[in-house]
Write a protein that binds this DNA or RNA. Structure first.
Length: 593
RNA sequence: GGAGCUGUAGUGUAGUGGCCUAACAUGCCUGCCUGUCACGCAGGAGAUCGCGGGUUCGACUCCCGUCAGCUCCGCCA
């Protein structure tokens, strides 16, 4: 084992090529692979930049050659030698540095390594448990390093862009106050204030608005946010937002600036030219046509309403759904008429997850519609339904009859499921879409009240303001989401900046004035001191990177993600704490573990 | 809170009631090899079949529970 002893790295492995041939080089890195031919040893040395082949031969450095025999995978080496063009016929076209090799004069073993539990290579097929437990090895893999590099470039791109546009990066507190609405908070007990708790921020929402009141005019932050909710492939308990806020702007100002920023980011990370402006869809249209507020518009298979045709047919499931205020909608799974009974049963089971009580289907054949329920329809009704869904022989039509939310959820999910299965959206690029005109409020059945759909600081559209007390469900918000390939990657709004409007909003969501004063008094007070009109947006940085890197989960673009049970398998968080710590925090556990 | 999938040498898999004294590949160890690049050749070591219980003459295999990971619903923008 050797210390560096003044040895300086001259080149990175992946940066070596014919241009450096003939030069003395010092390279340092990890052993990717050793090929020992007895009288000749090859070592592929890896650093962040790539691989270079090093040759050891008794002819060039006897000591180095014999030491190379002790080397094993992932040993950390420094190699002093000369770069040369490889002998004719021994070039490796599969390696970027395959035209050259380092002829080793001296070898320094800087550190040994245990045999790693999995190979340090891309496309590995290994239990994610292991990857997370040995994250430092997982992160050595080129594709993970690429992801980290891309992440850095994306952050730099955003900083450069926003800096040039006059935005200030301002930090906001991590120890803040728990507020009602939104996700469950992560809580931190206060030692100095017994019985009191901080909350980790779900987002810096209130602070960034206060910064606008403070006259900073343009703020941004690449900031960690925390939400104590259950995890998904695209949801982690702590995640990163690109958070922005601007004064004196309207919806279109935010959208166009955002488009420019995103286009620049795509260019700077994956060299993708994104056409602008992005297309837009209203919330209503998105729900009607795709059954979701974050539609994947890379393919069709849109939902078609056949409630009018179904209302008078002989199929009781359809008629009673319509009569009960529900609807009947269908999608055309084009070319799926050959699906077996079993396959259709699987689709039915899939729809059932989304609370659909059943899935009616028509198989469209040359000779007519084949369906267990075809007998309940007149030939004219069958024809009308087929026309509505643009059905052609060989197609499979799928219908759900229920309340609108269930119809949308089930068919929307079925549409994505079929697209996945039929590869309808595979590699068809990046489809950015704005969804605008969200409802301000949605009814929460569990709570028996309206709740803010975005958050309680979202401004209603001026013309809808009079409806806030009479028909709150119909008020549209000055809110917008950015959707990429069916994934919500950002959302924001123009905010309320007048105290009386904010108070009306609180009233609409059933927040009592005393409680509003208690939780948000500082905000209401701030609004009395000259709050400018303002608005902004926040992006799920991890999600955006996941999509650009074509990964299936945000864990693959985060250095140290957590498992579905919110555990860090490497450092083994969360963990127990010393009773003394709990006493200092005035925290008493109710259940012994 | 709920549903589904997965769990067998270091790793990836095979094995669906006795064929298992658990197989294959790779990795690991030893030896040989001067142009390999997933080097090759020969030999070797390595598994209480996630854990606990049950059924059975007999369980890696069937049943129940449990733990861990993943995907999803609910939850969450």
């Amino acid at each position: 084992m050797t210390e560096l002893a003044g040895l300086k790295r001259t080149h990175h492995c992946g940066a070596l090529g014919p241009e450096q041939a003939g030069q003395p080089v010092v390279v340092m890195g990890w052993v990717q692979r050793r090929r020992d031919h007895g009288g000749l040893i090859f070592i592929d040395l890896r650093d962040r930049s790539g691989l270079i082949q090093v040759v050891f031969s008794p002819d060039f450095g006897g000591e180095a050659f014999s030491l190379a025999g002790e080397v094993r995978g992932e040993y950390v080496l420094a190699i002093e030698g000369d770069l040369r063009i490889r002998p004719e016929g021994t070039e490796n076209p599969n390696l970027p540095t395959g035209e050259v090799e380092v002829v080793a004069r001296s070898l320094y073993i800087l550190n040994q390594a245990r045999t790693p539990p999995f190979y340090i290579e891309d496309d590995l097929n290994v239990d994610e448990n292991l990857r997370l437990r040995y994250r430092y090895l997982d992160l050595r893999r080129p594709e993970m390093q690429q992801a980290m590099i891309m992440r850095h470039r994306a952050a730099k791109s955003v900083r450069d862009f926003l800096d040039a546009r006059g935005f200030l990066e301002i930090e906001t507190p991590m120890l803040t106050r728990s507020t009602p609405e939104g996700a469950r908070d992560y809580l931190v007990p206060s030692r100095l204030n017994p019985g009191m708790f901080y909350a980790l921020p779900q987002s810096p929402q209130l602070f960034k608005q206060i910064l606008m009141v403070a006259g900073l005019e343009r703020y941004f932050q690449i900031v960690r946010c925390f939400r104590d909710e259950d995890l998904r492939a695209d949801r982690q308990p702590e995640f990163t937002q690109v958070d922005m806020e601007m004064s004196f702007v309207d919806v279109d100002d935010v959208l166009s600036l955002t488009e420019e920023m995103i286009a620049r980011l795509c260019q700077d990370t994956i060299g993708l030219a994104v056409p602008r402006p992005f297309s837009r869809l209203t919330y209503r249209e998105a729900m009607d046509r795709f059954g979701t507020d974050k539609p994947d518009t890379r393919f069709g298979m849109e939902l078609k309403d056949i409630s009018d045709l179904a209302a008078g047919c002989g199929f009781k499931v359809f008629t009673s759904a319509v009569a009960g205020g529900g609807q009947v909608k269908g999608i055309n799974a084009a070319g799926c008429g050959s699906f077996s009974r079993k396959e259709i049963d699987e689709l039915t089971a899939y729809a059932a997850v989304y609370r659909a009580k059943g899935l009616a289907y028509f198989i469209v054949a040359e000779e007519g519609v084949k369906s267990p329920v075809a007998k309940f329809f007149t030939p004219e009704e069958l024809a009308a339904v087929q026309e509505r869904l643009a059905a052609r022989p060989g197609d499979l039509l799928l219908f759900v009859a229920d309340e609108p939310q269930v119809v949308a959820d089930a068919l929307g999910a079925l549409r994505l499921h079929l697209a996945e299965r039929l590869q309808l959206a595979a590699d068809t690029g990046f489809n950015f879409l704005w969804v605008v005109d969200f409802p301000l409020l949605e009814y929460d059945r569990e709570e028996g009240r309206y709740a803010a759909m975005h958050h309680p600081f979202t401004a209603p559209r001026a013309e809808d303001l009079p409806l806030l007390e009479s028909r709150p469900g119909e008020v549209r918000a000055r809110a917008y989401d950015l959707v990429l390939n069916g994934v919500e990657i950002g959302g924001g709004s123009i905010r309320i900046h007048r105290r009386e409007v904010q108070e009306k909003m609180f009233a609409a969501i059933g927040l009592k004035p005393e409680e509003a004063g208690e939780k948000f008094g500082f905000m209401l007070e701030a609004f009395e001191y000259g709050a400018p009109p303002h608005g902004g947006i926040a992006f799920g940085f991890d999600r955006l990177l996941m999509l650009l890197a074509r990964k299936k989960t945000i864990r693959d673009v985060m250095a140290f993600p957590k498992t579905q049970s919110a555990a860090d398998l490497m450092c083994r968080a969360p963990g127990p704490v010393d009773p003394k710590q709990l006493r200092e925090l005035h925290v008493k556990l109710t259940a012994a573990r």
